[in-house]
């Protein structure tokens, strides 16, 4: 199908963009970044925004830089930017691993990191990264600027704390220590498709014991989140097969799985159990 009519706005400064968005947001006017989620929804007529504020020409939003020990990812940074570890260290390695699981090359060349966070599909890899690493999100509107912690940002499937008149201008991620171990595994029915479940874990080994563990699940629940109970279980423990098995059982038990006609909740629990085991094995290898 064809999208419904809209007025195309093409601001070149952030000031202009938030001013236009403030005017059109009450009528369901929206931001368009990569368009890789919005245009399909418009083609289905599931959204008919009468105004699109196109941020692809807004100066300054293409920044991908390390600042004050954090990686700043501007709203025009595309998925593809992370392909060759454009970002430094373990955080860069993690992002480039995740990028390979997002759709396909022709979508990665347009879709943006911040657009994924704004869209907030339950199985978005970037949303999982933001939740696992406690990203800080910077939102601008005509009313001002605010910082949102990832833990407060995700609120439900495709529902976030971002307000209709706000532009997500930047996401900031911590730089993980170089010796951070990373495990990421997802399961999807077709290559490049949205995952039914995914697991991301990072930790360090200090004197043979697990330190600073992060453990987050995506796709399995309405939005990605860290599982504090699993992290507590891991902290200070020796990384052995028993621990991984126990953690995988526990993770499968404590989630509140999404269900749909093709995917019963118990199937997602099984996936989380299996993916957790594999993610730990990968990180520990």
């Amino acid at each position: 199908m064809k999208p419904a009519a809209f007025v195309h706005h093409r601001p070149t400064t952030l000031e202009e963009a938030v001013r236009i968005l403030a005017e059109v947001a009450p009528d369901d006017g929206r931001v368009i970044a990569g368009g890789q989620s919005l245009v399909p929804i418009m083609a289905y007529r599931m959204a008919r925004p009468p105004h699109l504020v196109d941020i692809n020409h807004v100066a300054g939003l293409d920044r991908l830089a390390v600042e004050n020990g954090r990686l700043a990812i501007g709203a025009r940074v595309r998925h593809m930017a992370f392909r060759d570890s454009a970002a430094p260290g373990a955080t860069g390695a993690l992002l480039s691993t995740l990028m390979r699981h997002i759709a396909h090359a022709p979508i990665r060349t347009r879709g943006t990191f911040c657009g994924s966070l704004a869209h907030s599909d339950p199985s978005s890899e970037w949303c999982l990264a933001a939740a696992a690493l406690d990203a800080v999100l910077i939102a601008h509107s005509a009313r001002g600027v605010r910082e949102i912690a990832a833990a407060d940002y995700f609120q439900g499937a495709m529902t976030t704390d971002l307000q209709p008149d706000e532009i997500l201008v930047e996401a900031r991620l911590p730089l993980l220590p170089d010796d951070t171990r990373i495990g990421f595994v997802e399961f999807s029915r077709r290559a490049g498709d949205y995952a039914l479940a995914s697991v991301l874990t990072t930790f360090r080994l200090v004197g043979g014991k697990i330190a600073e563990p992060r453990f987050a699940i995506g796709g399995a629940e309405a939005f990605p989140r860290r599982l504090a109970e699993i992290e507590t279980m891991l902290t200070g423990a020796a990384p052995d097969a028993d621990l991984w098995r126990e953690a995988a059982e526990r993770a499968a038990a404590i989630i509140d799985p999404l269900e749909d006609a093709a995917t019963p909740g118990d199937y997602r629990r099984d996936l989380v159990r299996a993916l957790t085991l594999r993610a730990f094995q990968q990180a520990n290898a």
């Binding site: 245009v39 692809n56 090359a105 022709p106 060349t109």
Partner: peptide
């Protein structure tokens, strides 16, 4: 699929005005 500025894109997911 076409090539825009050297990179592959989905021509159905971009508006001509863009």
């Amino acid at each position: 699929t076409i090539i825009a500025d050297g990179a592959p894109i989905r021509a159905c997911l971009m508006f001509a005005v863009q």
